[in-house]
Design a protein around this nucleic acid. Structure first.
Lengths: 326, 326
DNA sequence: CAATTCACTGTGCATTTGTTCAAAAGTAAT
DNA sequence: ATTACTTTTGAACAAATGCACAGTGAATTG
């Protein structure tokens, strides 16, 4: 009953909105057509806007902040920095847009590549999502870390790998293993399996790697979301000097591998592996990631960083402060 | 150079649009703030709208046409008809919306199911796309027909199956075979492979099947898009009495399997297989599909039909005409 | 170099839109 | 049925918007 009435009402809203916005009629014309008063039409339009029946979206042009980019490049010796210019740091559109920008860069580099290794993550998901299916570069796509448990499906590693390979029209190398074994010994056994050894070898010998950077923020951390580490554990890691992770390898503020207790149990490429890959692209955006990004940049593992202007400023600022202190 | 200027211009457009539409400032206020004349602001807003920097979308409420639905149900002995009410038949939003509506129905039926078979297609893609990832029904998803060649990746059968299984949190049964073998003999060999026999068996014993309905219209036909049949061949099929296809099996106007020359070469469920599945859901929308849908309904293979009100009317009308003639 | 064109600008006025307010129409409780 | 209350309505006015047109200057052409 209520549904019925509601439905009719929002249908009216949509109808008025369509006449006004799509068919460019005046409120008076609409009022006459539907035999309503003009004021009523006006109120319906107001309601349509506020209730979301009419949605007005503004497509900001995507532009890079070249100044910040070259500042990052020279400061950290990067091959390339991609800095998406943003107005507000918390804009929910930032990550998809950064993905778009990064995807374009990646597409341009993929022509000369034969194998690409990828890690899961919200940011890398967006990059893969934004890759054009016409790219068709016949690049082999390799899963660089094991599959995570209980994670939101969208960011599942193997699915991401498959999707990308399909878009690029190339082969896939899955890493058929959990992300983390229960004990270091089990991890050793798993790593020594022929299939897994081979998959890791393929990933290691990639020309390009795409990874995300994680934080120790309990709201954001993939460690908490996957249940691999609890909030208390996260807090302890932070106290002991960890600032974030790259491909699930914890790093400290100075860019060294932080020896987390679970580190030997991870199945996937190590920081050294990533360092040996000719081009390692890290994507990360958001104020909370600034410290982690700084650590990642100092590690020397990254050749290309994609981020937003807000975060880039914070990173550069933090670097300047610490350098002055020292 | 030009890029730079263009970028600045559309940035201005976006800025003005944001101030006007998001921050509800008046054109006069904006003019003052950016030191432009009010007329200029007005013109920028016009340009922003016409150039697509500002996009206004109207979300029509989704409603079913229950009258048409029950007319279809009683006329063709369907378990259920889903009829999306549409205003214009050619609205590009129709298919996604129909997918949404069908997905909701499917989700409600999936709780009692253990296995679901699906066929590729634009319409079924939309249904799968609209399934909520929280559904988590642990249903096994089975690919009901082989994988097509050279098709737009988005509609690739195996990818669709994988995506759905992931959303539903259940297992997958791939059909590792091309859609069509080169000769009937080769098809026979392929079908007799253990893996394929098994995959077909899983699909056949599904509780629910989801299929699309194809037409012989050269613009729309998947046969032409995949290059399996050329336009001339399509024309010949039409002359000989075929009206469309379900899961790549051609049907005639009276709902019989039309014996196309390529039929024995297809690897996938047959019409008889689909008929034996307790609930076969067909999704199809668009005026060009009316004849094909009519044939499909008459075949008795379908238990549930999802379509739009426009197409539903055409189908009922065509049925009435032919019945009167006879 | 003048002439012509063309794209762009802003003034002034007509039209459209937004707001206010008092009256009307519901609603619920006594 | 009466009261006290909220909600909805549209007339009237104020504000904002849209448009036609004339003016400006830069670029192009004879």
């Amino acid at each position: 009953m209520n549904d019925f009435a509601d439905d009719h009402h929002s249908e009216l809203l949509a109808q008025v909105a369509s006449l006004y916005y799509e068919q460019d009629k005046t409120q008076n014309e609409i009022a006459a057509e539907l035999s309503l008063s003009r004021v009523k039409v006006h109120r319906l339009l107001q309601e349509a806007r506020s209730s979301g029946v009419v949605q007005i979206t503004i497509h900001w042009p995507m532009s890079s902040d070249l100044e910040l980019a070259s500042a990052l490049e020279s400061r950290f010796g990067l091959q390339k920095a991609i800095v998406l210019r943003v107005r507000r740091a918390d804009d929910p559109q930032t990550l998809p847009r950064l993905g778009q920008l990064t995807a374009r860069f990646l597409e341009s580099r993929l022509r000369q590549a034969t194998t690409m290794a990828i890690c899961v993550g919200r940011a890398t998901y967006e990059v893969v999502h934004a890759i054009s299916p016409d790219a068709q570069t016949k690049v082999q796509v390799a899963q660089a870390i094991g599959t995570m448990p209980r994670f939101y499906q969208k960011y599942d590693s193997s699915a991401l790998v498959g999707q990308l390979a399909q878009k690029l029209g190339g082969g896939v190398s899955y890493l058929p293993s959990p992300l983390m074994a229960d004990t270091p010994e089990a991890a050793h056994v798993i790593r020594s399996q022929r299939d897994i050894e081979e998959a890791l070898h393929v990933a290691r010998s990639a020309d390009i790697a795409l990874i995300g950077i994680g934080t120790l923020d309990p709201q954001t951390s993939g460690f908490v979301k996957t249940g691999l580490v609890d909030q208390a554990g996260l807090e302890r890691l932070r106290r002991e000097g960890a600032v974030g992770d790259m491909g699930w390898r914890m790093i400290s503020a100075d860019g060294q591998l932080f020896p987390a207790d679970f580190d030997p149990r991870i199945i996937g490429l190590t920081l050294d592996d990533f360092q040996r890959i000719p081009m390692t692209i890290a994507v990360a955006s958001g104020a909370v990631k600034a410290q982690a990004i700084l650590g990642a940049l100092r590690s020397g593992v990254i050749n290309v960083l994609a981020t937003d202007s807000e975060t880039a400023s914070l990173v550069l600022q933090a670097e300047a402060e610490i350098t002055v202190d020292a």
